[in-house]
Design a protein around this nucleic acid. Structure first.
Lengths: 339, 339
DNA sequence: CTGAAAGCGCTTACAG
DNA sequence: CTGAAAGCGCTTACAG
């Protein structure tokens, strides 16, 4: 099939290409009657303006980039990214923006992708995930002047816009809840330690445990996979003063931890309480269903996308706080059974 | 920062823009010495050709589109798509192709996206997932002449290129394995019935059960969610002649089914054997770990991407068969315990 | 309110 | 082997 161009529309409408452009983009410069006629003809012949031509003539690429850096196996199993993407997408497609996705292996590759996207003018802006401690992407994006919204923070985002949630508050709420249930030996299986949100959660965990006088409360680092979550749990539960409650930084590790507890003959929640960070349907599929820190991840993504579109539109980049995760108690938490 | 253009490179190299273009694209028309000098300068000033300008001057968009039609909640929980995407991406980014993603709500929206992408020249081709019975996307894409590779088949793909796997063979292998273990009452919780691969599996299931003389072997339709998988399982297990083995069309439903069995006091695998279609780390996180039909989904996606790039490059669209899923026996299958 | 024209940054025949 | 030029399909000042 032959693709209709703006010239085809202009010819059929008996006007200039400029008039068609004005009509299509809601600009002044054509009478209302002409605009309607042009729009009708465009719809009739199925005209869609070439994104390349629009992008080239100074307008925008109408696309937003997202580089994902986790290894493929982690990407697949964690619902987080797919949920985030679906929220981002919902917001973008409502404005006819495309989402350009790229999986990268490391930070250098990601920086190269940003530079290439910028040079190619392929995207109008990017969404930055998994903010790290001393993240080199922040200064690099600032220097390029590529519009960006960091999903994370609130620190370390430089002058870039950001959307963040108060993970420290959610962590404190969780520990206090476990404390109120009677737990005095609480451990945590954390995510990748160089991610900023992991550092935030770890600091909050240490602080609240100190405040409550919980000695030996420690975070074990892990990598979000079931294998590592299981390994960390085995280590924790083999210790002489094993914890009576464990908080996991994602659902997959929590489910793996549940399996380990069961394989070691510990009852959940009797001998061990389990809390998963990030609720997902998975948490409700296991026995007992997992107490989880729930939040609306698609809404988080949509929020970030909205802000990015605003920044692309010329708005000042701001730091916006999204709703923190809240505890959803289920069957995996209870007062510790006396030993 | 100012973006360098081809004119900047040409000026610094003391040649014409045409020469730079030839040098960059490996075309004849410049001496080897000049080419090397131009490439060095381009690298030095960080030049990346504008994708818009390339696309506009008759070349390609260097992008491939993928429209995902499942609802957000299903998208998030199923590892399948993220694994597929990571495989597609690996192949595309090696060739500097971008992946444009769009989540759509229904078939009409998806057709509209294809037409828009085509009209906008935003993508050079598309990957079509979740082939349906009498899929309207096939004739629509044929008519547009938009290069496409269908992930699925082998029937119903029209003249489009496709990559498919023999689900019927995998299903037969599974039923025969359960039969050999001694199972005579086998049920199946199937996926969405209007997906072609569901129809293929259902037909194969009926056929092999007939052949083996298994009366009453039936497929219950579901929608891949844990809720529906649990509901279907409850119904099956409440029947007077409850099955001793159930095959689920995805891992999430299988895990939900395992939970239901446990909640109803049935031992797995003693009272009920469970097989999950599509292996994922999830299957190994539960107790007992699930016997699953494993396949390399990233490889499947990479395969499809490679074929799409070939079709975009002008190759004839072919029907290619990928490796079928193979049974990975784990703790959830065993001979049925006599009642 | 409308038309003619320049320009975005490339690619690619066409001359030299 | 290289340069000058047309053209891709839009947008947007600039005249009328």
């Amino acid at each position: 099939m032959k693709r209709p161009t703006i010239a085809d529309v202009a010819r059929r409408a008996g006007v200039s290409k400029g008039a068609v452009s004005y009509a299509l983009n809601g600009q002044p410069g054509v009478s209302e009657a002409t605009r309607q006629r042009i729009l009708a003809i465009a719809a009739e012949i199925g005209f869609n303006p070439s994104s390349a031509a629009r992008a080239l003539s100074g307008s925008t690429a109408e696309a937003v980039g997202l580089a994902l850096r986790r290894p493929a196996r982690t990407l697949g199993i964690e619902p987080f990214f797919m949920e985030l993407i679906s929220g981002v997408e919902a917001e973008l497609s409502a404005r006819s923006y495309a989402l350009t996705l790229q999986v990268v292996s490391d930070q250098d590759a990601e920086l190269a992708v940003y530079r290439r996207w910028w040079g190619e003018r392929r995207v109008d802006g990017v969404l930055v995930c998994d903010l790290r401690v001393d993240d080199r992407r922040v200064p690099a994006l600032e220097e390029l002047g590529l519009p960006a919204v960091v999903i994370g923070g609130p620190r370390g985002t430089g002058a870039l816009a950001s959307v963040w949630v108060d993970d420290a508050a959610a962590l404190v709420e969780t520990v206090e809840y476990l404390y109120a249930l009677g737990h005095r030996r609480i451990a945590r299986v954390g995510g990748l330690p160089d991610l900023l949100h992991t550092a935030v959660r770890t600091a909050a965990f240490t602080e609240v445990c100190d405040r409550l006088g919980l000695a030996g409360a420690a975070t074990v680092s892990s990598d979000y996979t079931g294998e590592e979550g299981a390994r960390a749990t085995r280590r924790l539960l083999s210790s002489a003063s094993r914890p009576t409650a464990v908080i996991y930084d994602n659902d997959v590790m929590a489910i793996a931890g549940l399996s380990v507890a069961q394989e070691m003959g510990l009852a959940v929640p009797g001998d061990l309480s389990i809390v998963a960070w990030d609720d997902s349907p998975l948490c409700q599929l296991v026995h007992p269903p997992l107490t989880a820190l729930s939040r609306d991840i698609p809404a988080y993504g949509a929020h970030a996308a909205r802000q990015l579109l605003a920044v692309i539109g010329g708005a000042q980049g701001t730091t916006v706080q999204d709703e923190a995760a809240h505890l959803t108690p289920r069957g995996s938490t209870a007062p510790p059974r006396p030993r």
